[in-house]
């Protein structure tokens, strides 16, 4: 573990992985509770168009990705809230549009090809720059801040939208807040695991946590712990075995889920025996 920290690129990568592992499950818990587990995927696909737009216009792809992802997230939310289209169809529409737009725009960019997109689709954490780390840190703080400040309101909203309205909460604003926060998370996680696997970090640790917990808060905290373990652990292991870190991170997370599934069943059984002597 020590020799790993001798490399600057590895230090940067570990900081990025740590922040992403912490932020993604935090907002992910609300998204899963809201039955929008695929929201992150939808936004991720849209963000690809943003990345390509960055190459086309010569701006930083991360910045254009943020802008386009936020717009996409707002669009998903509006379609979901207003339209007759159900959430999953709205997401599907954006999946296709996002990928097609990305591929089209990158082919127009000077010197751009589908290969350029690969590092964004599958992540390239070992190439993060100091500036990347700064942006990731800023966005991660923003995401965690939103969860800390609006957490109670988001809990009510995600539990039952009608009750939230009857409690006088700004339902539309909070829904947009979730969507925008998810978009920011997607962009920061993009460098770590890639756009195609982004959602895994928002969903899998939560699914793992809920096998073992009884409460919402404990699920979220446990999910953040699992997320962090998966990103940092996966990244560190990929340093020793030559495999893409993004894929390894997601597989570590999934492995944790399978373990938790077995463990959770065991815990619940012993609990129910406890309460029915």
């Amino acid at each position: 573990m020590i020799d790993l920290l001798r490399y600057d690129f590895m230090q940067r990568a570990l900081i990025a992985a740590f922040l992403v592992g912490l932020a993604a499950p935090a907002i992910g818990t609300f998204i899963v509770q809201r039955r929008l587990a695929l929201l992150g995927d939808g936004i991720g696909h849209v963000a690809l168009t943003g990345v390509a737009l960055g190459f086309l216009t010569g701006t930083a792809p991360v910045l254009t990705a943020v802008v386009v992802a936020v717009l996409g997230a707002v669009a998903i939310e509006l379609v979901r809230a207003r339209g007759r289209t159900s959430g999953d169809v709205a997401l599907a529409l954006l999946f296709y549009g996002g990928i097609a737009g990305g591929v089209l725009l990158i082919s127009l960019a000077p010197g751009g090809s589908n290969a350029t997109l690969m590092s964004y689709l599958f992540g390239s954490i070992s190439s993060v720059t100091v500036q990347d780390v700064q942006v990731i840190a800023l966005l991660a703080v923003a995401v965690l801040g939103v969860v800390a400040v609006f957490g109670r309101e988001l809990f009510v909203l995600c539990q039952d939208e009608e009750v939230a309205r009857a409690a006088g909460l700004p339902v539309r604003l909070l829904s947009l807040l979730i969507a925008v926060t998810a978009a920011l998370t997607v962009v920061i996680a993009m460098r770590v695991v890639g756009l195609l696997l982004v959602s895994a970090l928002m969903v899998v640790p939560v699914a793992t946590g809920q096998q073992l917990t009884r409460g919402f808060r404990s699920t979220m905290l446990l999910a953040m712990l699992f997320g962090m373990t998966a990103t940092v652990g996966g990244l560190a292991s990929s340093f020793y075995v030559e495999v893409p870190p993004g894929a390894l991170i997601v597989l570590v997370a999934l492995g944790g889920f399978v373990l938790a599934l077995g463990l959770g069943r065991f815990v619940r059984r012993s609990r129910s025996q406890e309460s029915q002597p």
Partner: peptide
């Protein structure tokens, strides 16, 4: 409504 499976006490 119990949400998407996330437990709550």
């Amino acid at each position: 409504s119990v949400g998407g499976g996330v437990p709550a006490t």
